[in-house]
Amino acid sequence: KHCVKCNKAITSGGITYQDQPWHADCFVCVTCSKKLAGQRFTAVEDQYYCVDCYKN
Rank of each mutant, 00 (worst) to 15 (best):
V51A: 10
K8I: 09
A9E: 12
K8P: 01
P21Q: 14
W22H: 15
T31G: 10
C3K: 02
V44K: 13
H2I: 14
Q20C: 06
N56A: 02
Y49T: 14
A37V: 08
Y48M: 13
T16E: 02
Y49N: 02
K5W: 14
S12Q: 10
C3V: 02
Y54M: 08
A24Q: 03
I15S: 12
Q39H: 09
Q18N: 13
T31N: 15
Y54L: 04
Y48N: 15
H2G: 06
C6S: 04
K8C: 08
G14M: 13
Q39P: 10
C6K: 04
Q39R: 08
Q20F: 05
D52G: 09
Q18E: 14
G13A: 13
Q47K: 10
E45T: 11
V30G: 08
G14T: 12
D52F: 11
V4N: 12
C26A: 00
G14H: 03
V28D: 07
C26M: 01
G13R: 06
A24K: 01
D52H: 14
E45I: 06
Y54F: 08
Y49R: 09
Y48L: 12
L36R: 03
C32A: 00
N56P: 10
C29G: 00
D52I: 04
G13F: 03
A9H: 06
C26G: 01
K34I: 02
A24D: 03
Y17I: 12
I10P: 04
V51Q: 06
Q20S: 11
D25N: 03
Q39I: 08
T11P: 02
K55S: 05
C3D: 09
C3F: 01
C53Q: 02
V44Q: 11
T16W: 04
C29L: 00
A37F: 15
C29P: 00
Y48H: 12
H2C: 03
W22S: 03
A9F: 02
Y54Q: 09
N56I: 14
V51M: 04
F41I: 15
T42S: 11
V44E: 13
Y17A: 09
T11V: 04
A43C: 15
H23E: 02
A43R: 09
V44Y: 12
Y48P: 09
F27R: 05
D52V: 08
V4W: 03
V28N: 15
T11H: 04
C26Q: 01
V44D: 14
D25R: 10
A9Q: 13
K35H: 12
K1A: 02
R40N: 03
K8A: 13
D52C: 07
G38Y: 05
S12P: 05
K34R: 06
Q47D: 12
Q39K: 12
D52P: 10
S12H: 09
T16G: 09
K8W: 10
E45D: 15
N7R: 13
F41A: 13
C3E: 04
F27C: 14
Q18G: 14
D25I: 04
K35W: 07
L36W: 05
Y48R: 08
L36P: 04
F41T: 14
G13N: 11
H2T: 05
G38I: 08
T11S: 06
V30A: 10
Q47L: 14
V4P: 08
T42W: 07
K5G: 15
Y49W: 11
C50W: 00
T31L: 09
Q20I: 11
D25E: 14
T42F: 03
I15N: 03
K5V: 10
T42M: 12
Y49Q: 13
Y54A: 05
T16P: 01
T16D: 07
G14Q: 10
D25C: 06
K34V: 07
K35Y: 14
D46E: 04
C53W: 00
C26T: 00
D25P: 04
Y49H: 15
H23P: 01
D46Q: 15
C6T: 03
C50H: 12
N7H: 05
Y54S: 12
F41M: 13
K8S: 13
S33T: 10
D25Y: 05
C3G: 02
F41Y: 14
Y48I: 13
Y48S: 07
C6V: 02
V4S: 07
V30P: 06
G38K: 09
Y48D: 03
H2K: 13
F41D: 02
H2F: 09
R40T: 13
D46L: 11
L36I: 15
Q47Y: 08
C53K: 03
H23Y: 00
C26N: 01
V51R: 13
D25H: 05
C26S: 01
K1D: 03
A43P: 06
Y49S: 10
I10M: 04
L36K: 02
S33R: 08
T11G: 12
C50F: 00
W22D: 04
A9L: 11
I10G: 01
T11D: 06
N7V: 13
T16F: 03
N7T: 15
I15T: 13
T31W: 06
Y54W: 11
Q47R: 10
V30S: 12
V28A: 08
I15V: 10
D19P: 06
K1G: 02
C26F: 01
T42N: 01
G14R: 10
C26P: 01
V28K: 13
C29K: 00
Q18P: 06
V44M: 08
Q18F: 03
W22N: 03
Q20H: 13
D46M: 02
K34F: 05
H2R: 04
V30D: 02
Q39A: 11
G14L: 11
C6M: 03
V4L: 08
Q18H: 07
V28S: 07
Y48Q: 11
N7E: 06
Q18W: 07
E45R: 10
F41V: 13
F41R: 11
A43D: 03
D25Q: 08
A37Q: 13
D46Y: 03
W22E: 04
G38R: 09
D19I: 01
S33E: 13
S33N: 11
K1N: 14
P21G: 07
A43I: 02
Y49E: 08
C29H: 02
K55Q: 03
G14Y: 05
Q47P: 02
Q47T: 03
C26K: 01
G38P: 12
I15A: 09
C6A: 04
K35M: 12
K35Q: 12
V28P: 04
S12F: 03
T31R: 07
V51G: 07
V28Q: 14
K34P: 00
S12M: 14
I10Q: 04
H23W: 00
F27Y: 12
Q47W: 08
W22G: 05
Q39G: 11
D19H: 05
P21R: 06
P21V: 08
Y48A: 11
D46G: 14
Y48W: 09
C29E: 01
C3A: 00
Q18I: 06
Y54V: 06
A24M: 05
D25M: 04
H2M: 15
T16N: 15
K1Y: 02
C53R: 00
C50A: 01
L36E: 08
Y49L: 05
S33F: 02
T16A: 07
K5C: 15
A24Y: 15
V44P: 10
V30N: 10
S33G: 10
A9T: 08
Y17L: 07
K5I: 05
Y54T: 07
C26Y: 00
D19T: 10
S12Y: 06
G38W: 05
R40S: 12
C29N: 00
V51H: 11
T31S: 06
N7P: 03
V4D: 08
A43G: 12
H2E: 06
T42D: 03
Q39C: 08
T42Q: 06
K8V: 14
R40Q: 14
P21K: 06
Q20N: 07
C26L: 00
R40M: 11
Y48F: 08
K34A: 11
L36G: 05
V4M: 03
T16M: 02
K8E: 15
K8G: 12
E45H: 13
V51E: 12
